[in-house]
Amino acid sequence: GGHPVTTQMVETVQNLAPNLHPEQIRYSLENTGSVEETVERYLRGDEFSFPP
């Protein structure tokens, strides 16, 4: 991942996926670069990993 992630982006995802840890959200956003894509992954039931 190398996309810039803002606190705003993390908070937006958190509102839609409250049971995800912020670190999981941030890591996913760094890989996708997209709030929409991260939320899609969540709704699909994809696994969210923590940063290594």
Rank of each mutant, 00 (worst) to 15 (best):
Val39Lys: 03
Pro52Glu: 08
Thr38Phe: 03
Asp46Ile: 09
Ser28Ala: 10
Val13Thr: 05
Asn19Asp: 14
Asn19Thr: 12
Ile25Asp: 00
Arg41Asp: 03
Glu30His: 08
Leu43Asp: 04
Ser49Cys: 12
Val39Tyr: 12
His21Glu: 07
His3Cys: 11
Thr6Ser: 10
Glu23Cys: 15
Leu20Lys: 01
Thr7Trp: 15
Thr7Arg: 14
Arg26Ile: 10
Phe48Leu: 06
Glu37Gly: 08
Asn15Lys: 15
Tyr42Arg: 00
Pro51Asp: 05
Gly45Thr: 01
Leu43Glu: 06
Val10Lys: 03
Gln8Arg: 11
Glu23Arg: 08
Glu37Val: 12
Arg44Cys: 05
Val13Ala: 06
Asn31Leu: 15
Glu37Trp: 06
Gln14Lys: 12
Gly1Lys: 11
Gln14Trp: 10
Asp46His: 10
Glu11Val: 11
Gln14Phe: 08
Gly2Glu: 10
Gln14Val: 08
Glu11Gln: 13
Ala17Arg: 02
His21Met: 09
Leu20Asp: 01
Pro4Ser: 12
Leu20Ser: 01
Arg26Glu: 05
Glu47Met: 12
Val35Leu: 08
Val35Trp: 08
Leu43Ile: 10
Asn15Ile: 14
Leu43Asn: 10
Gly45Ile: 00
Thr12Cys: 12
Ile25Trp: 00
Ile25Thr: 01
Ser49Lys: 14
Glu47Ala: 13
Arg44Pro: 00
Val39His: 05
Val13Asn: 01
Thr7Asn: 13
Ile25Pro: 00
Gly45Lys: 03
Thr12Trp: 15
Ser28Gly: 02
Pro22Ala: 09
Leu16Ser: 08
Thr32Tyr: 06
Thr32Cys: 06
Val10Arg: 04
Val13Arg: 00
Leu43Tyr: 10
Gln8Ala: 12
Pro4Ala: 13
His21Thr: 15
Leu20Tyr: 02
Gly2Val: 14
Gln8Val: 11
Gly45Phe: 02
Met9Pro: 01
Thr7Ala: 15
Glu37Ser: 08
Glu40Ala: 15
Gly45His: 04
Glu23Ser: 12
Pro22Phe: 10
Tyr42Gly: 00
Ser49Thr: 12
Asn15Phe: 14
Arg26Pro: 02
Val35His: 02
Glu30Asn: 07
Tyr27Thr: 04
Leu43Trp: 09
Pro18Asp: 04
Thr7Asp: 15
Glu11Tyr: 09
His21Ile: 04
Glu36Lys: 11
Ala17Ile: 13
Ser28Asp: 10
Gly2Ala: 13
Pro4Thr: 14
Glu37Tyr: 08
Met9Ile: 03
Thr6Gln: 05
Met9Gln: 08
His21Gln: 09
Thr38Pro: 00
Glu30Arg: 07
Leu29Asp: 00
Glu40Phe: 15
Thr7His: 13
Val5Phe: 10
Glu36Ser: 11
Val10Cys: 08
Pro51Thr: 04
Asn15Gln: 15
Thr6His: 06
Glu30Tyr: 11
Thr38Gly: 01
Ser49Arg: 12
Ser34Gln: 03
Gly1Asp: 10
Tyr27Pro: 00
Glu37Lys: 12
Asp46Leu: 12
Phe48Pro: 01
His21Asp: 10
Val10Leu: 11
Leu29Gln: 02
Leu16His: 09
Leu43Arg: 11
Thr38Cys: 05
Pro22Met: 09
